[in-house]
């Protein structure tokens, strides 16, 4: 497992306290899991994703990540409708371990702008991890 100072946490992203990241580009928000989350899970063997068109409220479970002997739910940091899922992960779930930022999980169209604003900055997320 990585030490906290070894984690890759890009400055330009926003973070949730459930260890997801979000990035806003125009009207679409891209969502994935953080380096910390992938490191805790270990070798990811399967990513269960929602279908395009599914809608979730902030904090809802939108999928699961599986390692050999554990299942972790992923929670949506911003409510909205799914407009894209990363199909590469269906056959190559290990991409999330290799680079959890390039390898996003879903893209959504948010219901409101406000929820994105309430997410954590890199600095605040780091504080959360340090406890």
């Amino acid at each position: 497992m990585k030490e906290i100072n070894e984690l890759n946490l890009p400055e330009e992203l926003m973070y949730s306290d459930d260890h997801e990241w979000a990035q806003k580009e125009d009207a679409v928000i891209t969502i994935g899991i953080t380096d910390y989350a992938q490191d805790q899970l270990g070798d990811i063997v399967f990513v269960e994703m929602p279908e395009i068109g599914d809608s979730f409220a902030k904090g809802d479970e939108f999928g699961t990540l599986e390692s050999v002997k554990a299942v972790s739910e992923v929670f949506i940091p911003v409510g909205g409708e799914v407009v894209a899922v990363n199909e590469d992960l269906e056959d190559s779930p290990e991409l999330v371990n290799e680079d959890p930022y390039t390898n996003w999980i879903i893209k959504i169209k948010p219901v409101t702008d406000n929820e994105f604003q309430t997410l954590l900055s890199r600095e605040k997320y780091l504080q959360l991890l340090k406890g």
């Binding site: 070798d43 063997v45 399967f46 050999v68 779930p93």
Partner: peptide, 8 residues
């Protein structure tokens, strides 16, 4: 044995 490979 490689259980990760088996599951992936």
């Amino acid at each position: 044995l490689d259980e990760t490979l088996a599951a992936r």
